[in-house]
Design a protein around this nucleic acid. Structure first.
Lengths: 187, 187
DNA sequence: GACTTAATATACAGATCTGTAAATAAACGG
DNA sequence: CCGTTTATTTACAGATCTGTATATTAAGTC
């Protein structure tokens, strides 16, 4: 892996978050990264490909971070499901948090046949599936439904926080999640 | 009000939803609307201003539609809060639904000082305030908290539906809302 | 030291973007 | 019927966009 490739990914990820994807030109990216367009296009071929790589990398980081956090906590399955909301809150509290990339990308590329939109949708599906597996382990009667409901809470909280920093959305999402989880397990 | 002004607003609203705001040029808008750039700029001065007007109009339509729906139902306050989710589901079931404009706009214009971002944030705040007034009438112990939680559910559902049509997110959001509302009233 | 790969600077092609100039044509109110 | 508003056509300015051509310069590697 080239160090310049990493630098470009980092800079692009940052600029996409703070200025928007379509509002960020490749000229800006290479200028901030301290390289040239030729190098960028050698590594990523097209801007669309760069966007896809940025999304993939962020998603992988998020999944790894979450898995590690949940792995080191040796709780009971239902406690782990609630602990997840502590980690989501921690993730959103990071000063560089500017919203969930795949949520914002799907808004900028609404066309369902667009590769960026498709990847965003796929990442959202993967996240729901992960929630469903946690709900399953916790013994929820309808794990799929609970997972969808919790994902709506989480993504809604991320939206609220992206629109206004310090909204406290994560805290209230956590409380709501506790109620929903209890209701889904008590039968 | 000019008929061309209305036409431009309709076409712009439609194109912004289906292609994204930044990906839609004014040339495309006037071509579809069957007019010229001169006319567009006479009515709206700048593209940013057109975006703001489109957002304002959609928001007004949504508020009016919801108020009428809730007005004609002479229910008890707590039933009205739940009935709201029936109407949200109905709104999202419309074939032309492509997501909530102010949510998508805030993703395309992440800069907090941007007028489009500011208007989006303001519209999200107004919606939460409306929910809070309904929660208050229903006798919720903490109306603000319940309103924020319900708004996260609704916006999360809209995101899910915008990413994949026919996700059934509205139905599950309604069930989750029932649980949250009951919990918030039972004390 | 010869050879291959990676990165550089510079320049440009071609498209598209927002916004405007200027002159003309139609609509309409008095 | 005259004057004013409104809309239209055509053309363009100036910026910015993605992507490439070309030629040069390191940087490793055998």
């Amino acid at each position: 892996m080239s160090v310049l490739r990493e630098k470009i990914l980092n800079v692009a990820s940052d600029l996409f978050q703070t200025r928007g994807i379509n509002s960020t030109g490749v000229d800006t990216i290479v200028a901030v990264a301290g390289t040239t367009k030729m190098t960028l296009y050698k590594h990523f071929q097209t801007k669309e490909n760069l966007i896809l790589e940025v999304l993939k990398r962020h998603n992988q980081e998020f999944r790894d971070w979450l898995a590690e956090k949940l792995g080191e906590s040796s709780r009971t399955p239902d406690k782990r499901l609630q602990a997840l909301f502590d980690y989501i809150e921690e993730w959103m509290a990071a000063p560089e948090f500017r919203g969930m990339p795949f949520l914002k990308a799907s808004a900028e590329f609404p066309n369902e046949e667009n590769p960026v939109h498709r990847l965003s949708t796929e990442q959202a599906r993967q996240f729901r599936q992960y929630l469903a597996s946690l709900a399953q382990e916790a013994g929820a009667s309808d794990a799929e439904t609970l997972a969808l409901q919790l994902s709506m809470l989480i993504e809604g909280a991320m939206l609220a926080e992206q629109m206004r920093r310090g909204s406290g959305a994560a805290k209230h999402a956590k409380k709501a999640a506790r109620v929903l989880i209890e209701a889904a397990l008590k039968r």
